[in-house]
Design a protein around this nucleic acid. Structure first.
Lengths: 184, 184
DNA sequence: CTGAGCATGTAATCGGTTACATGATTCC
DNA sequence: GGAATCATGTAACCGATTACATGCTCAG
């Protein structure tokens, strides 16, 4: 009798509150919206949609197009809105441990790996800088009143990107000092 | 012929570099070592161990005990050390998007959910504070020379916990202001 | 004429978690 | 007497990713 949905199912339901969309559109939409903290594979989206319909949380309409392939357009139903509401206001289960492969490697590192690990930290730093740049671009254009709630998630991205950059800089310094110490 | 292992397999291999251990001991060890960024289920550890043996990366010895159940003690082999080394120094694949259920909920939030979401942010703040406290305790006792590489991962935990706390405080203020605005 | 975009899906595989199952010993 | 610790594993299930498969249209 249908216990809860998965977070990704709720995410799709949530995206549908912005208007009816095809699977294809939803896939693209994720990149410009929740993509910084939730990015399901498109095959997952296509798999979810009919299941939402089966549960009465969404409704599909076949739209014929010439020049373009026909498409299924999905809209959220009242029941879907209720389900989303319920999930939104229910306590979030304590977040599991955030896995991080780089930390795993660093943990097992030894002086001999210094150079190779350094490179990987540099890569992490660059990735964080690129992400920060993208988010700052969004920060410049976002409407903080109209898009108040998305703005809160943007702040998270900004804060954690900066923290990551700060950490990588600290680590690079320590790694260099360690390297010098080892050579002495 | 046996491409790479999973990160968790490497993690187990890495833990074995600290000395031979039983599955039971490895499970406990994760909590005091890599547990802040990598915590496999114990059933996973038990599943991995024989596979490592099968690949010649670890070797098992049966140890009989009275008073305690007999146990299998696993030790890393030369081949295991080589495999670990190779993984450690190979470029880390670009980290995927870090999923965060709370951000997902916030993104889809509307003023009506303000109070319920606020509670969830408070919970996140408390969790981050607890974690920060634990890490600061480790910071006080860790040997920054002997445990140089693990120390680098500790710094990551400190940095990101503080960033999370800062973010939650910012969000709580904004949420309160928003709530007042809405009531006015 | 080629590549990008539109559009939908299936199949194989993976990595992982939760719950279940068992049983002795030791500490309180 | 009961809970925690030692010790190992299986089975069921889940959520997700990658690769594969197809085929039309439009812009350069």
């Amino acid at each position: 009798m249908g216990g809860g949905l998965s977070d990704t199912e709720y995410a799709v339901l949530g995206l549908l509150t912005f208007g009816a969309r095809s699977g294809y559109d939803l896939d693209k939409l994720t990149r410009r919206s929740i993509g910084y903290f939730w990015r399901p594979a498109k095959s997952k989206i296509y798999a979810i949609l009919p299941r939402l319909v089966g549960r009465g949380l969404a409704r599909a309409t076949q739209v014929a197009q010439d020049k373009r392939p026909d498409k299924q357009v999905y809209a959220i139903t009242r029941a879907g809105e209720r389900a989303l509401e319920e999930w939104l206001t229910s306590p979030e289960p304590a977040a599991g441990v955030a896995r991080d492969g780089l930390l795993l490697k660093l943990f097992f590192g030894r002086p001999a790996h210094g150079a190779a690990l350094r490179e990987q930290v540099v890569a992490r730093k660059r990735a964080a800088e690129r992400k920060l740049g993208e988010l700052e671009e969004i920060e410049r254009t976002i409407d903080r009143v109209e898009d108040f709630f998305p703005y809160l998630t943007l702040l998270h991205g900004l804060e954690t990107s900066r923290a990551t950059i700060a950490w990588t800089e600290r680590v690079l310094k320590l790694l260099d000092r360690e390297g010098a110490r080892a050579r002495a």
